[in-house]
Amino acid sequence: MRHTWRWFGPVDRVSVQDAAQAGALGIVSALHHIPTGDVWPVEEIAKRQAEIAAGGLHWDVVESIPVSESIKTQTGAWREHVANWQETLRRLSAVGIKTVCYNFMPVLDWTRTDLRWTARHGAKAMRFDRIDFVAFDIHLLERPAAPADYDPETRDRALQRFRAMSDERKLSLSRNVGAGLPGSADGYSLPQLRAHLETYAGIDRDRLKRHLFDFLSEVTPVAEEVGINICAHPDDPPWALLGLPRVLSTADDYADMLAAVDRPANGMTFCTGSLGALAANDLPAMVRQFGPRIHFVHLRNVRREEDRTPCSFYEDEHLEGDTDMVAVIAGLVAEEKRRKTEGRPDHQIPMRPDHGQEILDDLTRGAQPGYPAIGRLKGLAELRGIERALSHLTYGLS
């Protein structure tokens, strides 16, 4: 695989040179300062490319070109936003970008209740606490339909949890849940979040899926024309939140999406952390099922704390957690071998060590939550070791 590293631009406290020292060969980045829905300016694309090159690496993957809420709801200036998305693809292709990741999660993107929860050995990790989230939904956000979405026991536990919360915890919980995309300036106050939820009134899961397919029917031909693979990131976590539908959580969801717009450029971002939070997802089997259409890989692990769905979970170390990472990497190595035999120019799949626990000097660096330097270095080293062993001519699968 092509080993890459997410970098949030000059504001990132982990530099491109740090990524190179950690063993990354390429960078995953985006122009987070450009308003969602706008075309990415040529000069800003060139500037980011130069910033990455100055650190000694290459800009391999764009993550993400945000998909606006207008596109997801098909309201307002959504057609203009689709056209701008298409034009941004053309401009990225012109500077050599071949892979673009995006997501189609409504309102909230990845959602956690804790951004720096204390794990074992004092490491800090991101965590989703189911009861905290319900307490937020019912008692802080005060969503009118929220109580009906939960069973009596869950409501009772959430009420007890809320009553025990300090004002500081209530504030941090609201901030954590309302956070926008990593690296972006987006984020929602409680009134803003309530207003955004109202825009999805009448949009159920089937309708949101149709909107996704409509979007892909417009942008995939352009991606194909300019030589870019686009790849949809799964829902994180992979279940409905705040009454909002989710459409990319399971193997069936991806099968529907890939069949609806059945073109090679339309593919998936295989994120083991997002998909792994749902116990019903068989990740090694999904690699085998969707291998030819996996255009980008996020490797991370989560530990489910409950035998139920939804569940509480936290970001574990890359080789721990509930996902069999060796089996996943074995499947990806086999897929790359198959592609190379076919002569596919994209036989090498870009991968990045996703997230990571804050350890050692990470604890005082203050980097983007989930994106520490040393925690990701440790993860990348472990993942590379597995891949190297599985690819060995004598001892591996080759």
Rank of each mutant, 00 (worst) to 15 (best):
G55D: 13
R163C: 10
D114G: 00
V62Y: 07
V62S: 10
T88N: 11
G178I: 14
A53C: 10
Q86P: 01
K170E: 02
T73D: 11
D156N: 04
S68V: 06
E153T: 11
A125Q: 05
N84H: 15
N103W: 04
W59Y: 12
Q86N: 07
H81S: 11
A123W: 12
S64Q: 10
N103E: 04
Q74D: 13
I138T: 02
E87T: 06
S64W: 06
R169N: 09
A135Y: 00
V82I: 15
Q74H: 13
V95F: 02
L173I: 12
G122C: 04
C101R: 13
S68K: 14
T75I: 05
V100M: 07
A53H: 13
L115K: 06
R161N: 01
S70L: 04
E142C: 10
A53P: 10
H121P: 02
E69M: 08
L89Y: 10
G56N: 14
F133I: 01
A77Q: 15
H121D: 10
V61C: 05
S64N: 13
P147R: 07
L92P: 04
P106D: 13
K47W: 09
L115T: 10
R48Y: 06
I131Q: 02
R90E: 06
P147T: 04
L92S: 05
A148S: 14
C101Y: 08
I45N: 04
A119Y: 03
E80L: 11
E69K: 11
E80K: 15
G76P: 05
A179G: 03
T73P: 10
A148V: 05
D109F: 14
L108Y: 12
A164D: 03
Q49W: 03
V134P: 00
E168K: 04
R163A: 09
Q49S: 10
R143C: 01
G178K: 15
S172N: 12
V61G: 06
P147D: 02
E69Q: 14
R157F: 00
F162E: 00
D129E: 13
A158W: 01
R163N: 14
L108H: 13
F136C: 08
H139G: 05
D132K: 10
T88D: 11
T111G: 09
H81V: 09
Q74A: 15
T88W: 14
